[in-house]
Design a binder for these strands. Structure first.
Lengths: 326, 326
DNA sequence: CTGAAAGCGCTTACAG
DNA sequence: CTGAAAGCGCTTACAG
């Protein structure tokens, strides 16, 4: 910048004005500076700009696992929004590990980000209270934080699950199994609540022994449910996420009798399987887009109370959910 | 940092020494400083550190599309390597648009990155020559750059495609269709070359009219090939990437006669389809890991000639590739 | 073993 | 409309 200034015979300040498009520069001066910038290939050093202005020009995203299509769809949407606004995007995967999440968040904050988007791991998020108080906007995605009030974007987990199970009930099922992750996970707990609500609405008693929580092994949880006595075996399954849907499909391959199935989360090829899979679908990218909008509104100065946005879900009937009980 | 210094009754320089773990600080002094750091919740401002040291503490990754599982697997691997080394990761998607790639790269460079990893869009990359000359390490992934020599990590496209087509030939096929992207795309051209090599090795003449290049509509390209006269219709298809494999599977749904199929790129659920899909598989994450290793070696000072790494491919027979011709 | 001074490349607050 | 001075929060080069 000093080179540009001396080459254009102006002061640093005037170069700065031109670079930032500030008004009140005589056109001829501006042109001389612009020419010097062009000639010398000058590009503003954003690090120095950040240090001086206390702005980062970047947002941070911490998600569970960048290589998981669900999260990468969110990341892709956030990237798009950042790019459109001229912001850089810093990303980290915390892989369900609260300690790693903490480390990643600290690293992002030390490098400065104008906002933080987080798919929180289990655990407490009070460690962010200070930072929130200091004014860093933060938005939580897919799961609410614990111990802190902040903008949050969630799916309609309860509604989606209720619709799925009601659909199975409407097709004549009474013994419907639930297969999912530990209910320590927010989304799993919500979807189990939706499952229970649908049963209750139909006057079907909830049975603990039809709930299969997989400890990381979805296929085995499904097998266990199906190995019950024939007259007490579930005739339908509600799978609370796509990992469990896939596990269930694997587990059902060798089962002679047909079992109805509705899964939460759509997935590619669902309609190309031997029996196309009925699912609860939603717009994954919308989670990211909504979170990004909230974040940029905060950056722009929105100081309203924390808001909670909910992305709707819809049932897509493809075949597996319309199988009648034997 | 000034607060820490005055609180511990030392100079800025001594705090700096403790923060950076430099030797030659008296243990008691170091302890006093550490206590002050703890007490005040001091965290080094990485922006100021960057400005002063001309280091970024971050690497940049520019890929085609963050929401595509292939690229997000690469991104996930790169993120892991960055995290393990204490680096932050800046990501951008350029969506096959050379102009957007250019803009993203410039943005990353202005913010400083210690290395740049790129899945290049088509187009010329000479715009990076200056930056390369200035010493920024850059590694190209999945496709070689044009107009610039730099570290590159590729798949064994030719070998994988040749193995796939040889497999079909070994199962008795002579009329084998190729379905893929425009050969302007490096990987597509390479895989077509592998297809031709396998035909040549078996003494089968290459036929232009069995090559289906989809202009963004894989399913239609497949249909066109299968609508040929029965005695001149391909009895097998080689699909040059997973988008075309999925398109082919869609296109084949209503086709009465069985058609053998081998796809390049593995995909989830391939083995759960009505006919499990034979594919050319490789370790996607390895592309990212290898690229990251090259980049960090450069950051650490490796000044050797640009290297080219190749990730191997293997054929996984699952059923669709072992269908005999009628 | 410790510190005072200068400076990284910008912008801010002010003067003219 | 333009510029000189100070400073963002650190590290470097040097002195003691």
């Amino acid at each position: 910048m000093r080179d540009v200034a001396s080459s254009a015979n102006v002061s640093l300040k005037t170069v700065s004005r031109v670079v930032n498009g500030e008004p009140d520069v005589r056109p001829e001066t501006a042109a001389r500076v612009a020419a010097a910038i062009e000639r010398l290939g000058f590009r503003r050093n954003e690090i120095a700009w950040s240090l001086r202005t206390s702005r980062a020009g970047a947002v941070g995203l911490v998600i569970e696992d960048l290589s998981n299509p669900f999260y990468s769809a969110i990341a892709g949407a956030v990237e798009n929004e950042a790019h459109a606004r001229g912001y850089a995007l810093l990303i980290g995967s915390c892989e369900e590990d609260p300690a790693r999440e903490h480390a990643l968040v600290l690293r992002l904050l030390r490098r400065w980000v104008d906002a933080l988007l987080i798919v929180p791991a289990r655990g407490d998020h009070r460690y962010l209270l200070g930072e929130q108080h200091a004014g860093t906007p933060m938005v939580f995605i897919d799961r609410p934080p614990r111990g802190i009030e902040a903008d949050t974007v969630l799916l309609d987990n309860v509604g989606g699950a209720r619709a799925a199970v009601a659909h199975l009930i409407a097709h004549g099922h009474r013994r419907i199994g639930f297969v999912g992750e530990s209910t320590e996970l927010f989304t799993s707990a919500e979807r189990l609540a939706g499952y229970r609500a649908a049963l209750a609405a139909a006057g079907i008693a909830f049975r603990d022994d039809l709930v299969g929580i997989s400890a990381g092994e979805p296929e085995r949880a499904v097998r266990a449910l199906l190995e019950r006595a024939p007259d007490d075996r579930p005739t339908a399954l509600f799978c609370a996420d796509n990992r469990h849907t896939v596990g269930a499909l694997r587990g059902l391959r060798d089962v002679p009798q047909p079992v109805a199935l509705v899964g939460f989360d759509d997935f590619e090829l669902a309609e190309l399987l031997a029996t196309p899979v009925t699912v609860v679908r939603y717009d994954t990218a919308e989670l990211g887009v909504t979170a990004a909008r909230l974040a940029y509104a905060r950056i722009a100065g929105d100081a309203g109370l924390p808001s909670r946005e909910v992305v709707p879900c819809e049932l897509v009937a493809r075949g597996s959910g319309e199988i009648a009980p034997p």
